[in-house]
Write a protein that binds this DNA or RNA. Sequence first.
DNA 1: CTTGTATTTTAGTTTGATCTAAAGTTACGA
DNA 2: TCGTAACTTTAGATCAAACTAAAATACAAG
Lengths: 115, 115
Amino acid sequence: MDAALLSAIGSPRRREILRLLWDQELTAGAIHQAMPDVTFGAVSLQLKVLADAGLVESRPDAQFRVYRVRREALGPVGAMLETMWADALWNLKLKAELKESRRGPRPRRRRSKAR
Amino acid sequence: MDAALLSAIGSPRRREILRLLWDQELTAGAIHQAMPDVTFGAVSLQLKVLADAGLVESRPDAQFRVYRVRREALGPVGAMLETMWADALWNLKLKAELKESRRGPRPRRRRSKAR
DNA sequence: CTTGTATTTTAGTTTGATCTAAAGTTACGA
DNA sequence: TCGTAACTTTAGATCAAACTAAAATACAAG
């Protein structure tokens, strides 16, 4: 219930992750597969922000790392998010919103392997 | 109850304004007086963001413009903010947090009048 | 120990958010 | 109508969030 929580859920990208994790545990890799427009590294960084804010936690599981939401940390905001996600209009807006809110460099061509 | 609300309360500066307005109406000028580290223009811009998110509204009053919080738009988040503000520890942290989270240019010396 | 897979961390880049300063707008009152 | 006060908007500057690519780490299994 502090400022870090509020700024954590202020980011559409992080809300996207929360939504994926809302009713299932997922590995970092699975989260990344569901977010094809960013690199694995970017997902990992946002997971760290969420973890530092206490909104998600992870445990090792063989060679994987499994993430889950800590709903209790969200308090009443959890219900708000659920309402937003249940709203069909919101779903339609999601893609546009993510595209709009993109920051950072555009994808670059991977340098072709030196031979 | 949409994404604009969540990103609006994600900013410490805007939460500071919400707090000032929480239990009283204030003119834009009065808000600025309570925030001596930013210019009037910056306050006005943040008030616009809050108004666009539906979190505050304003009405003209003679030569002034009076702002007030629309608590109903905040839903359960309002109670969360109150809890945060009631927490004495949070109060101690406020100044440091604002200093840390500053963005944009540092104040420049006002150019001395050409003579 | 080596190889491969999963993830984190680092270094560097881009862009939007936030700011300042100044110009523009609106409304009151002399 | 003119001036002034209150506020908003614009143009430009700076900073940190969010990204990419690549290097580093962790850990399992052969």
